[in-house]
Design a protein around this nucleic acid. Structure first.
Lengths: 213, 213
DNA sequence: AACTGTGAACGGGTTCACAGCC
DNA sequence: GGCTGTGAACCCGTTCACAGTT
């Protein structure tokens, strides 16, 4: 049990540590220092140490961290000892990209449903998964005990889908639609807007270019 | 010209303001208050005002902000008066999802190339765009004056692709591969790891569920 | 009265620097 | 000597609260 509460910023980096720890284990590395983790993640070494200190004191002074044991601890703290069943709503390119993605399994996630409203898509297979009609949302979420869902629909229906998901019992949403999702307290939402990411780059790009003739 | 430098956190929110401003203009809204923007973006009103104050003093006390004029200013600051030619490397589902995405144009971005190494994909058309061989990367970037590129390849080749992109003159990268990208100073990188996003949700989900029997 | 613009207070997160342990 | 763990200092971003403007 973590004694101190873990800061949000730290929580957001834990999955990155986990990713490189898994790589390191694969390469046969037994121990790793905060410097090693820093290089592999792009996070500064002091920050790595402070982040890991929130989980407990799992390092050995003069040596570093045991890769396997630290992996276990990070997994545990993130709640990734279990495999979360995830539903994806929207079987456009993005939804299919996610459904196809290998490597979720190793990272504690399994896509158990891919729903769409377009009848021409329903029945198609994507990465071993059948596209099902969005009308089945409620039943699917309940039967497959989905707690985390991905919204990969057009913005125009995203809010409505979010409400149906929450109504069915989903309490975590990852939203790719370019629109704000309102949810009741107690439900988490993370949003990724691809155009926004590119537009942020545009700002810095503009500064670089500005002044050239 | 902005007098004060604009904080990173503010820059990251400007595209979101832009998005809702465009929606509001579409709905015929002439002016909007910081409260209105706050509701539509999920950002708190004081933060909205402070953010916008970095661009200049474009509001009217007692009234709010002129939607059209503010849109123009946000666009200008973000460097989105021009349309940036963007290249995508990797024509898997994710690359194709991006290439297909409508609404980039309105938001100052145009996908001008979609490159892949798989010969079976080359020559296919995606959203009016031809998939071209990655060998052409250097030529394509130079000829089409690409400054911003998207990496949608497997992690194993992402660093190599990044280096080729930078070598060809790209100075902003949006990376979807689950791996750290090292670039020389003066190049911007933003990374989006879809599994990481889900794993962050897992943490909060776990806390919610913990203690249930 | 409504709403912006902003100093000032606050809080969280980052980084430093070093004591403590192997 | 090498590396962790952490108080303390610092920095950035957020929020408050109100003076200023229409």
């Amino acid at each position: 049990m973590p004694v101190r509460p873990i800061p949000e910023a730290t929580v957001a980096r834990l999955p990155v540590y986990l990713r490189v720890l898994l790589e390191m284990a694969e390469r046969g590395l037994k121990t790793v220092s905060s410097n090693g983790l820093a290089e592999a993640t792009g996070v500064n070494p002091a920050k790595v140490r402070k982040d890991l200190s929130y989980l407990g004191t799992y390092g050995t002074r003069g040596v570093g961290y045991d890769v396997e044991y630290l992996t276990f601890q990070v997994r545990r703290v993130l709640g990734l000892e279990q495999i979360w069943p995830v539903a994806i709503v929207g079987a456009g390119n993005l939804g299919r990209a996610l459904a196809n993605h290998k490597g979720f399994a190793e990272r504690g996630l399994r896509i158990v449903a891919l729903l769409d409203s377009n009848s021409r898509r329903i029945g198609q297979k994507v990465g071993g998964l059948l596209i099902e009609p969005v009308e089945e949302l409620d039943r699917v979420v309940k039967e497959r005990e989905v707690a985390i869902a991905v919204i990969a629909t057009p913005a125009s229906v995203a809010q409505e889908i979010a409400e149906r998901l929450v109504g069915a019992g989903v309490t975590s949403l990852l939203n790719f639609a370019p629109t704000l999702i309102n949810v009741p307290a107690g439900v988490s939402v993370r949003s990724v807007d691809l155009a926004v990411e590119l537009q942020i780059l545009s700002y810095y790009e503009e500064r670089r270019t500005a002044g050239r003739s």
